[in-house]
């Protein structure tokens, strides 16, 4: 699945990284707990979260993630977007809630690492 596909499935708005929409991603995780993301994510993937602070960007950077999707319409500030953009990440937000957003991606073929 490409990041562009994810945008379509989630009806998401792209906040930065528009040039990287055709990258292929193999898995995703949904979490508001960055410690869990650091503990359980193993491959380059997509992070869905409702948490909004710069450590979301840092966590994604440490894990070599390609894309962050903020659920429930959450919107990061300019400094956070600059940080993500400097690492080539795509950042989007969707009005969907976490459960629905994860469900749509899973049904669309993007599995979790434990699936």
């Amino acid at each position: 699945m490409t990041i562009r596909d994810i945008r379509e499935l989630l009806g998401a708005q792209v906040l930065c990284g528009e040039d990287n929409m055709d990258q292929v991603v193999l898995s995703a995780c949904g979490s508001d707990l960055m410690s869990d993301v650091l503990a359980y994510v193993k491959e380059q993937s997509v992070l869905l979260t409702g948490l909004v602070n710069p450590q979301v960007m840092r966590t994604a950077e440490m894990m070599d993630m390609r894309c962050i999707v903020f659920v429930r319409g959450k919107k990061p500030d300019g400094a956070m977007l600059d940080l993500a953009d400097s690492h080539g990440m795509v950042v989007m937000n969707t009005p969907l809630r976490m459960y629905t957003a994860c469900g749509r991606l899973y049904a669309g073929g993007l599995k979790g690492e434990d699936a």
């Binding site: 508001d32 707990l33 960055m34 410690s35 869990d36 650091l38 503990a39 602070n53 450590q55 979301v56």
Partner: peptide
Amino acid sequence: ELGFGAGMGLPNMKR
């Protein structure tokens, strides 16, 4: 509330 403090830090470092 900031996404940390779940007691995963040191275990993650060890792992």
